[in-house]
Nucleic acid binder design. Sequence first.
DNA 1: ATTGGCACTCAGCGATTGTGAGTGCCAGCA
DNA 2: TGCTGGCACTCACAATCGCTGAGTGCCAAT
Lengths: 350, 350
Amino acid sequence: MAGRAGKGMVAMGDERRMAVLRAIVEDFVASEEPVGSKALVDRHELGVSSATIRNDMAALEEEGYIAQPHTSAGRIPTDKGYRMFVDRLASVRPLSPAERRAIHSFLEEAVDLDNVVERSVRLLTQLTRQVAIVQYPSLGRSRVRHVELVALSPRRVLLILIADTGRVEQRMVDSPSEVDEPLLADVRARLNTVLADHAFADVQEAVDGLEEQFPEEKRPLVAALLATLIEAAVERVEERVVVGGAANLARYGKDFPQTVHPVLEALEEQVVLLRLLGEATATEKVYVRIGHENEFADMMTTSVVTSGYGPANRAVAHLGVVGPTRMDYPGSMAAVRAVARYLGRILAEQ
Amino acid sequence: MAGRAGKGMVAMGDERRMAVLRAIVEDFVASEEPVGSKALVDRHELGVSSATIRNDMAALEEEGYIAQPHTSAGRIPTDKGYRMFVDRLASVRPLSPAERRAIHSFLEEAVDLDNVVERSVRLLTQLTRQVAIVQYPSLGRSRVRHVELVALSPRRVLLILIADTGRVEQRMVDSPSEVDEPLLADVRARLNTVLADHAFADVQEAVDGLEEQFPEEKRPLVAALLATLIEAAVERVEERVVVGGAANLARYGKDFPQTVHPVLEALEEQVVLLRLLGEATATEKVYVRIGHENEFADMMTTSVVTSGYGPANRAVAHLGVVGPTRMDYPGSMAAVRAVARYLGRILAEQ
DNA sequence: ATTGGCACTCAGCGATTGTGAGTGCCAGCA
DNA sequence: TGCTGGCACTCACAATCGCTGAGTGCCAAT
């Protein structure tokens, strides 16, 4: 009640114009049709006539917040209009306690990281009815929990890297010589001593000089192991991303092929996905990129809502949803934030 | 030349009708438009007039191989028509040596199983321009190569299962007591002795009685490990499937939303995917399911081309492509067969 | 600053018509 | 018996037209 400052007092102009913009965004998102002045005064209690609204609309159009598809049609928000809506006008709709509980228990049931990620994607698609993207915890931001070496055959060793975030990477290593089990045990022990709790990024330095600790004739195998280790942990770190809910793109609109095809195509490219998710390093904060704010030409008609996530506010990866610019921002932001938060807690428990 | 048996000799009727059917399928697949009698005689050297073709077409329609979208339109093949085409009329177009080499080298570059599967999907989508599905080697048809137990924390053990097909499964095991490293080593050694080269399906029997070999006070941990092992290897075997090329669905046609949405949705369901890939156990053989032959209502407008794959003719999983019934069957079949074959070879090398 | 009134615009819809691709049938021919 | 040219017929699709109504911008009045 305190916020209702000036009902009919002063400087109303700007305030109401923004209320009109908000109303336009909300109605357009709901109906997917251009909204006219008449419809606005009917559906929202703005306390003025449609003519007044028309004046406001003309002003809003002048400032670039809304546009007309054609002369005798209502207005639709521009990207700039959505931006204003997201930054200033939208109140974040909190999820219901029931929803929160559902999220929590659904994620709790997961048995391993793959499962957690898969379930997160599912949650996001169902909560937002949009395309969801979840990145696996980045190795670059994880720490080494354990290194395992397994001799699979006389000339083959499997290198297994386990991160504190639950990620498990494996690489085959072709051994230059017959595998020597005691040596393997020795290497394993030293690696674990040296690497325990080190960041993946520091693996290279941490193992520096390790090779020289072994007698000359053992070094080829040690070198091969270290090379693969460094490649997996530092040089060619494999980012993994999972996409789900592509079916939701089919609810796009009428102009299908042109709009959806490039988007679907983009969503198959790991690189694109990672850049879409962005570079944000904070958890808790939710980022929104609207239409043309996006760096990819194919994504000009879509908006992206993302957030970092990780244990204890340490963002180790990102997740988000992709949908048409005409989307329910408050709802999507709430869902993304909630899933990111619970996902972080799950990781913290690991 | 030898095959051209009866140019104007005897029993031509049926033979030419089938040639007409083949021509209709080929033209329709190429143009996506109903094909008329005139167009047929122009584009194919059938040696007869369009009127004759019309008679043949009437007969083919009578027999249910082709249909007319509406009276004054050309004909399109029915599912039955495609079936005949696939079974009798199509010559399998072999891939070019260049294509074969490309497949081989692209798969060779893969570093681990994940990578191999991912690359296979990519190959299939690019070769066929359709949606590709590749199943990971099924654990139920794999053998145990190695079991690893890693103590990650005082009360947590990571169980790692490595299959001869390259699959690696991991499960967390919460230990009922402080983890005892020598015990772990003992369990690991016995498990590997007992399980080596056993089929996953036989794991349960193979470890039968193992628990009793340990002193009473050690048994809780052993029991927990065995329970998780059995669950992962036998009871809740996780099938994994990767889908790619969904963007290709966007090239479907004009009647988008109705057709594509359900298909996209179906492709997000693991269960559906696995049933689509089918139960075939032979490698080498390529299966085709056309339109209504499919068991899912949502898939009535699509065809599925699948094959088993695996090392040395032992099918350990399936792969395939999904596309509109109007698809290039010879090409798709050739691609599926080729990728399955090379994939099998790669697995054999593992 | 707001409002009612009014003239104006124009996308979308339905009805109408013309065109052409394609068909089925038939009588004549090899 | 099988093939062919000819012909009348059908009907989807495209183009054209007029109408309607939602929505606008502007203005004079309050």
